[in-house]
């Protein structure tokens, strides 16, 4: 039976509260999920009051400020701070998004920050993504063509053919979508998830790739592809505005087209 509740070691308690400094004008409270392997306790929610007038506009600015000025043990992934690397993916105000693209002003009340859902927590807001990366590798996200490329130029592709890749190549592999999917929560060991399926479709839709049949063969499985129940959390949450549900729909259409 699937576990709808969190395991015993994962239920969340109340942590510490740090109040705003004197003279702070525009105070917002950030409630952040904390757990360390060196703790001998369950995860907790720590509350940090921050004067948002002295920091940048995004949630990432706030947690960097907290780490620099208040609590240096706060741990999270971050890099480009401009929404292109995918490192700072986390659950903010109930939805998965990139912290560097989420304006603090867009959130009402306390800003609640959790790690990406239903994942093993390494520390604080950092989750283990090894499984997801392996799933990406398993669909062979590279060009597979038997025809030799032209010796003096690139493989040719018309504008119409290239337009089929729009909405697919822009994926930054942040895994917001995959970890927002209830089907992936319950069956993430066998279901590939929206991000990996979008990547698979990116290569299926590429006119220069010549192994489309094999790629479709590799997805024809009750769980790998068909565990998608069109719940649509993925499209709702993608911070880059992409549409994994639509890409998965296209794959299913192609699978059917081969059979009928």
């Amino acid at each position: 039976m699937v576990e709808l509740r969190l395991p015993h070691n994962s239920t969340i308690g109340v942590g510490k509260t740090v109040l705003a400094p004197e003279g702070a004008k525009n105070v917002r409270t950030f409630r952040i999920y904390r757990w360390s392997p060196d703790d001998d306790r369950n995860p907790v929610m720590d509350s940090y009051e921050v004067d948002v007038d002295v920091i940048g506009p995004m949630v990432l600015d706030a947690i960097i400020h907290i780490k620099n000025e208040i609590d240096s043990t706060l741990t999270f992934r971050r890099s480009c701070r401009e929404g292109i690397c995918g490192s700072c993916a986390m659950n903010i105000d109930g939805e998965n998004t990139l912290a560097c693209l989420k304006p603090i002003k867009s959130i009402e009340g306390d800003i609640k920050i959790y790690p990406l859902p239903h994942m093993p927590v390494v520390k604080d807001l950092v989750t283990n993504l090894d499984g997801a990366y392996a799933q990406l590798r398993s669909i062979q996200p590279w060009m597979k063509a038997d025809t030799a490329p032209p010796p003096d130029k690139e493989r040719l592709q018309s504008q119409k053919e290239r337009s089929k890749l729009d909405g697919l190549w822009e994926c930054i592999l942040c895994f917001c979508c995959t970890t927002s999917c209830p089907s992936y929560w319950w069956n993430g060991d066998r279901y590939l998830g929206p991000s990996v399926l979008l990547a698979a479709y990116r290569w299926i839709a590429d006119s220069r790739d010549e192994h489309t049949g094999e790629r479709l063969d590799g997805l024809e499985d009750t769980f790998k592809l068909y565990a998608c129940r069109t719940i649509m959390n993925c499209t709702q949450t993608c911070p880059k505005g992409l549409n994994p549900a639509k890409a998965i729909g296209h794959i299913k259409e192609l699978q059917l087209a081969r059979k009928l």
């Binding site: 090894d130 398993s138 592809l225 068909y226």
Partner: peptide, 21 residues
């Protein structure tokens, strides 16, 4: 076992389109 080996699992079942259709 390597992550890739775990994910590949027992391979694909080659079914699903009929059920979906």
């Amino acid at each position: 076992r390597s992550h890739l080996g775990r994910v590949r699992g027992l391979g694909v079942g080659h079914s699903g389109a009929e059920h979906w259709w």
